[in-house]
Every structure is written in structure tokens, then in C-alpha cells.
Design a protein around this nucleic acid. Sequence first.
RNA 1: UCCGCAGUAGCUCAAUGGCAGAGCAUUCGGCUGUUAACCGAAGGGUUGUAGGUUCGAGUCCUACCUGCGGAGCCA
Length: 448
Amino acid sequence: MSDSAVSAAPLATIASLAQHEGQTVTLRGWLYNLRESGKLLFPIFRDGTGTIQGIVPKAAVPEEVFTTIKNLTQESSVVVTGKVRADKRAPSGFELDVENIEVIHRIPEETPFPISLKEHGVDFLMEHRHLWVRTPRQSAILRIRATIMRAAQEYFDTNGFIRTDPPILTPNACEGTSELFEMDYFDQEKAYLTQSGQLYIEATALALGKVYSFGPTFRAEKSKTRRHLTEFWMIEPEVAYLELDGLMELAENFVSHIVKRVLEGHQADLKVLQRDVAKLEAIQAPFPKISYDEAHAMLEEAYKKGAIENPHTYGDDFGSPDETYISSQFDRPVMVHRYPAAVKAFYMEPDPKDPTKALCLDVLAPEGYGEIIGGSQRVSSYELLKSRIEAHDLPLEAFQWYLDLRKYGSVPHAGFGMGIERVVAWVCGLDHVRETIPFARTLNRIYP
RNA sequence: UCCGCAGUAGCUCAAUGGCAGAGCAUUCGGCUGUUAACCGAAGGGUUGUAGGUUCGAGUCCUACCUGCGGAGCCA
């Protein structure tokens, strides 16, 4: 096991082994699992890009190499040298004929790696999230998350948007509704963690035309559902002179682009997740668009057929089961627009054709995943906005700067926010958003 | 906050009010094509906490703690 022998072969990653068929390469990673059959060992290695099974016949390697591998423990870190060989029996199509190994850190058997290959409960896994992320499934999700974030930014960056990041510490509620995380801001003041950058990017949109923000947002709501985190990432475009129709077009092109990028780069990961790829391939703009009234009619029909448990009251927002039903009726995301203004935020522009409705949209992901995007055209009239702020009992002083935007060259403008974790959950086919972020923050967990 | 469910070996789970068990993990032994390998053996327990009922409680009752699922709210 000389170091020179180990380092002599060129470095490779497991994901790129197809390019190294027949060559001897060096992999740097960890032991994922070890099976043995007498004088034959089958160590499976992982390196963050994938997994590969090594083959170690006792007769083919020095005694010391065989013994070292035979005594390895799960998740011990190793540098392995071996020859890449195509093999039909291997799930990835390739195997590694191990020639040499260097153990970087061997986990003692008294303290085995806690996460075995067998089934575990949610609480145990979340308690060991720092180790859980090593498993193939979790790694696949995190790689797809990275692509979704990159594709989202790429779409805006290549379409003339300027990224302008709003503050994370804010002086007041953006919408005056959700619960906020509060903290002391030096001596006299309170500060709050942002729940949306929207109001701030309305300001930068009027400066730069097309902008977006991307960062973490915080909600102190005591929600405990598969769709909620207390800390989540949101990407929000805001565009001057954009109206509702244009906003819907932006949303469908944006979402289609993201799904396309995942399909291009993550076939292997989607396979690990056992995702039905055909369902993702159907995600192409344009998306179906229905009004709140039409959605309400669908729900009435569904209730008559017994497809949903409770009737939907006209005028109310849609509940979680309502959204799930509506979205499950389409093979691509459905855009629901023009909700009753009364149930929506104060800053949404009323529909000139029916002022009781707001020029807003929700995008509901298919397969019952529910809302991934919420957005609207914003009130552009100073007087209307001022009266709305007052009607919602919001402190006028705090919104003075926001009102200024309507005082100096106000224009129609619109934007939306997309929750990254919900998109990851949908694209990966997961049943809970806690697996979509490296370290989820939920109502009952802030560790690890 | 409300409704429902659950806490037993490191993990996943059994156990009619009557001796606390299995699989995996760990250790030892066997096996040259295994795919969460398999076969044999060993070690491993204050049954979430505090009370109560009972001859006897993992099991029944009360309170609390922790977690899970759902609702509301939202992305």
C-alpha cells in the first residue's frame, strides 16, 4: 500500500468513470457498503458524484490490501486505485477492479456510522441530518437543488434582469400578516428577519426596469405541514411596466426552463429518486390558466362527485386540499388568477374590469404539489395604496418610503415569488420539503 | 393554536394485564459474482418522565415531555 502506487494513477470522479474505461484511476471518497463472498470482496465506494462497486478477489491483490478492505467499516474515508471495467451486472454499467487502497480515516467498530442501509424514522434521520446528507438519495436531491437554483438565476440573468438583493433585517412586516422572527436592533429598536424582499425590489425595479432577488426568507408561523419551513429560499422577479398577462408568461417560461435544465443534467439522480421522468418532460409552456371563478366551479363539481371532503366557499382563499385537487387535474403547472381582493395582500392591483378581484396569480404544481409561485400586479396609485395600508391597519410611517414609489413616476409593475424548496420537492417527487434543503428549519427543529 | 397518532436494544418494529423478543447494525466463524447479499453464533434493555389502579403494568388510568400526520396560514 505505498503512497506512490496510490497516487500514480490519475484522479477521477465516479460520475466520470465512463470516460476512463480500461484505465487505472484513483478515486477519493468513502466506503458506502461492503459485501463479501468468501475470498471475494465487493466494496461500494462513493465520492459525492455517485457510487461504484469495487471487486477485490483475494488472489488478485496483495494480502495487505485484501485484509485492509475486509476490515473496513461503513463511511471510512479511503483513496482507491483500480481499473475501470464495463460490466453488465453493475447498475451504473461499470465496476472497479481494485488494485490498491489507502485508508484516510477508519471508523472504529465501537462507534459505527449511525445510518445503516436499512429503514430509519424521520426523527432519527433529521437528528443525524449532518450524516444523512451522505446517502445517495439525499445527495441526489441536493445536486438537483443546486441546478434548480442555478437555472432560476440563469433564466433571469440571460433575460435582462439585474439581481438586487433586499435586506434580510427589516424594520417592519412587509405584508403585515405573517408571524415574524423578532430581534433586538441595538438599543431602542426591534428588527425582523425578512419574509419577502418584494417591497424593496419594487423600488429597484423602478430604478433598473427588470430585477430579481434571491435569498433566504423567514416565517415564524407555527405551520407543521409537508410544505412549510421557517427558513426557506425564495427567488423573486419584479418588472416595471409589466402587467398580469406578461407576468403569467414570465412564470411559465421560467418554470419550464428550470425543469428543462434538471432533465438535461440529472437523469442519474432522478433515477436514484425513482422519479417519473415522463411527468417532468410534459412541463412545457404554455401552462393552463384558469380564473378564481373557474377554479371555484371545479371545486363545486369535485365536491358533488365526492372528490373533496369539504365544499369551497366562494370568496374564501383555497385551502390546502383545494389546491391539491385543482393541481391534480392538470399534467403541467396550472395558473390560477384573479382571486378576490379581500383575501389577498394590500399591495395587489384590483382588476379594472371587476375591482373585487385582484390582478394576481398562483402557480400550482401538478401531482398535488400545490402552490410554488405567488405573485401579482402591484397597486400603482398613491391614493389607493395609502387607503389600502390604512384599511389593513398597517403603520403608515413605516410604509412612507414604499408610498414614495407611487409618488415619483409610478408605473404599472408586477412580480412573483417562487419558493425553491417547494419546486425541489415537486421536481424530485418528494413528500416533504424538509429533504430539499441541506439543513431544514422547522417548527420543532433547529438542530443540527 | 386546534384535531388525531406514537414513544420498547444503536436503528426499524413485535410482545391476550402474567418469563422483554425478532430483523438490521456491532463482534466471531463460513461462502469466488454479491446487489439493503446470504448462512451460523455471541454480546446488547431503568419499555419517554412522574404519579396511580392491580397479587402482578411495556400493556389500563392521569398529568407532563418529545416527535409524527393533518388543519389554519403561506412560498
